[in-house]
């Protein structure tokens, strides 16, 4: 009896005519809310707000489209991940060891969980190690990655060269020049007032 009833209940569900929610042509929806925007547009909008405003918005309604958790969303890289620098809420991560040919570098927005992997220059045999820095150039309004490459030549002291990658332009690393004071991966660095400072 019970089974029969539940069967009837089920079929009853399907008897309900399916309503079309698509507005017919020519009628404009007058009560669209910001929550009807696709997620990609919402992220575009919210990423222009200060963090305080983003959290305030959570109180607007339950369905506020961006999931806000106190957790940061990092790329799934496992335990071999090191922080290179952080800047304006973005973080730059190193996966692997900087003296190892197979390391990779990521830029991540931990708040929205977006990230991308940078295309690194081909690893040359004479490279002994590299050191990275990540910063925002106030002069150009662009994010830049610095890559200090130490090269060994037989019988000569090590040479350090600076390479620069500008985010969002192309995938080229511009070789700036040799640097007189090489920095090390282990140096502390801090980004203050538009400049990256390395500290021994």
């Amino acid at each position: 009896m019970g089974a029969k009833n539940s069967k009837r209940k089920c079929s009853k569900l399907f008897d309900v005519p399916i309503l079309s929610f698509k507005p017919s042509k020519g009628i404009r929806i007058s009560d669209v809310t910001i929550m009807d925007l696709p997620r990609v547009i919402m992220v575009e909008i919210l990423s222009r707000l200060p963090i305080k405003s983003i959290f305030c918005c959570k109180t607007v309604c339950k369905l506020w489209p961006i999931e806000l958790s106190p957790k940061f969303h990092l790329p799934p890289l496992g335990w071999n991940m090191f922080l290179i620098s952080s800047c304006n809420g973005f973080i730059c991560l190193l996966n692997g060891k900087p003296y190892d040919e197979n390391h990779s570098v990521y830029i991540n927005n931990p708040f929205f969980g977006q990230y991308f992997k940078l295309k690194l220059p081909e690893w040359e045999k004479n490279v002994s190690r590299v050191t990275y820095g990540f910063c925002f150039s106030e002069a150009s309004g662009q994010y830049k990655l610095l890559r200090l490459v130490a090269r060994k030549f037989e019988g000569c002291p090590e040479v350090s060269e600076l390479e620069v990658y500008t985010v969002g332009v192309d995938e080229k690393w511009r070789n700036v020049r040799e640097v007189p004071c090489p920095v090390w991966h282990r140096f502390d660095k801090v980004y203050v007032s538009g400049a990256l400072h390395w500290m021994d």
Binding site: I34, C57, V60
Partner: peptide, 19 residues
């Protein structure tokens, strides 16, 4: 949205408060 009160954000973007 920036610096608006929660109530104002609801009004501007046609959001009903479901809390």
């Amino acid at each position: 949205i920036n610096n608006k009160s929660v109530r104002a954000v609801r009004e501007i973007f046609n959001i009903s408060n479901d809390y």
